[in-house]
Design a protein around this nucleic acid. Structure first.
Lengths: 345, 345
DNA sequence: TCGTTTGGCTGAAACATTTCAACCAGTAGA
DNA sequence: TCTACTGGTTGAAATGTTTCAGCCAAACGA
């Protein structure tokens, strides 16, 4: 019962095959791959030729097994579909690909379980670092991962409270800019279409708005009507209009992001409400299309590409585990882009 | 010279430690993890307790080394920043996360080198499959990878010519829909703001447009003015306006995607050209914000979420290497969304 | 009492690398 | 002639799993 040959399942070739083909030891093949300066010119050529001839591709898992942590970092966002993230991602990718690092994209969909599950898999994969916009307010599990040696950088969320590296845009300031602008235009009843307050960004923007109101000598509770949306989608943005107070309704709408503003604008248009005449609308993020909406949308701009790049940069130093690196926070300043949705033109 | 202890660099713990702690062999620990039904209840509990107590996390690389191919698939897009992809990605992620697969995101930026480089790394990682929108027209290298056992599915690009699995939207049909619509509105001079013709989608849409023109009994060379953009960005879309013929200029603008259309609309607005009165504008992809642009943009809709999901699905079967699976192509049909940028309302 | 079966567990091989101590053939210096 | 060094190379250990043949003790049947 000698099985003559089963060509179907031939073994994947390894360095052993290359070594045999080139007539050297596996150690030498490894050196050719990783420290060619140790290898004599002649041998180098011979081995490289064998590699090419056989079509050998080294195995990353085996490499990693020996060498410790791997060459792919995790990037966890709350929702890939959000245009905000798709504008941040290129910045991250650019920097990572320079370092030959793979980007493992995870989307928690704001679910703590899904986030935890992804984190577990990432830890199993021995990633050197993770870039994350946490789903919930509690980030102790992230601190724990950091303690176990995984580089950790919070994206778009301050991390001072937990001694974690973080890259963020000053959301309080952003909310303040928005609020000050609306107040300056004379608005005294402002609806804030916000996400769940456990999301840090949402809470911060709200805080900024309130601060602007107080700075104007007014009472936030009287000026601001907050509507909490279950999800930050255009659909919910539009639906939220139904929940605005009927009498003594707001004259301005501050939306926690442009996606929501998109829906709100659509809803207002359908109802025949003129923007900004009957209702001013203000967004957040200044995504690419904000300027081209009808009417063009006033929005708080965040330096998204830079944000991504800085985050990746910080992760690199954190993952390297430099001793003299402790805990760093980079905060960008937002900028208000005034357009037709608040100021008639 | 006995080194008493160096607590600083304690080894990462492995199944050996768990085994010792629980007083069993490593083989049993492995069984607890992978085939618990083979293990006695008592032992099961004891080992699980040890795992928890020590905080053991199994090593994916070691697993993979033994087991063959890994549990992360590659997704290569041409440009992460493109909203088209960010609407396709969620569909992919949804399906993959159901299968506990990680999504490794690669962006070729339309560079064949970068694509090749990423592919090489993915092969080293022994990914079971790759989902790809190829950067160039030549896909022989992909066929080769497929031959070497890596599942391969073309995304948004037909693959019949190379016997590869593919998921696509019928781009010729889409171009045809767009052309027919513009012709029906009476336009006889149409500018086509296109990407480089080596990109398959661009070539196909152009072909569809030409087909519509011929179907109307007209000469494509007379009706269509093609402008080739170096990149499909809003900036280039706007810049392209400069290159339109001055006299006997076009009365309609067909943009190869909505991002370009965005730029074109902005440019036209700045120049005081009224849309659709002086110039009709038509986009492609029907991204989320198309409906809300000023004016709302007529566009060719693609079922993006479905596209992503179908692609992931197909990849799963291809990567599984089912024998009775040969080569499958799923083609979705596009749909024309008529709005104010072509039809005055 | 003696085989036979069976559930549960063990020990070792296999996986594809990297790294490192040791070795070897020359060459140079004493 | 012996020793020391040097650039190259080798062989083996180590990395953390999975798998599988085999072992042991208990239960069972005759």
């Amino acid at each position: 019962m000698t099985d003559i040959h089963k060509p179907a399942e031939r073994r994947r070739l390894s360095m052993v095959d290359v070594a045999a083909h080139a007539g050297v030891s596996v150690g030498t093949v490894s050196n050719v791959l990783n420290r060619p300066e140790l290898v004599a010119e002649r041998t180098l050529r011979r081995v490289r030729a064998s590699i090419k001839a056989l079509g050998f591709v080294p195995s990353a898992p085996a490499r990693q097994l020996r060498g410790g942590s791997g060459r792919s970092v995790g990037v966890m966002v709350r929702d890939i579909g959000n245009p905000f993230f798709s504008e941040v991602l290129p910045g991250i990718e650019t920097r990572l690909s320079q370092e030959q690092l793979l980007l493992v994209l995870c989307s928690s969909g704001d679910s703590a379980e899904k986030e935890a599950h992804y984190l577990q898999i990432l830890e199993q994969h021995r990633v050197p670092g993770i870039l994350i916009t946490p789903a919930g307010p509690d980030i102790s599990h992230l601190v724990e991962l950091r303690r176990r040696g995984i580089g950790m950088v919070l994206l778009d969320r301050p991390g001072a409270d937990a001694q974690l590296c973080a890259v963020a845009v000053d959301n309080v300031r952003g909310g303040e800019l928005a609020g000050a602008h609306l107040l300056a235009l004379g608005h005294r009843r402002i609806a804030f279409l916000n996400g769940p307050p456990i999301v840090r960004q949402c809470a911060d923007r709200r805080e900024g708005l309130a601060r602007a109101v107080r700075a104007a000598g007014l009472d936030p509770d009287e000026v601001i009507t907050e509507v909490t949306l279950p999800a930050l989608t255009p659909r919910e943005g539009e639906a939220a209009l139904e929940r605005l107070p009927a009498r003594k309704g707001p004259t301005a709408l501050f939306c926690v992001n442009d996606t929501v503003a998109l829906g709100a604008l659509r809803g207002l248009e359908r109802r025949g409400v003129r923007v900004p005449h009957d209702m001013a609308v203000l967004g957040y993020d200044d995504v690419e299309f904000a300027e081209l909406l009808s009417p063009s949308l006033t929005s708080v701009r965040q330096p998204k590409h830079q944000l991504g790049q800085a985050a990746a940069e910080l992760l690199l130093t954190d993952a390297r585990g430099d001793v003299n690196h402790w805990h760093q926070e980079i905060v960008f300043q937002p900028e208000l882009m005034v357009r037709a949705s608040t100021v008639p033109q």
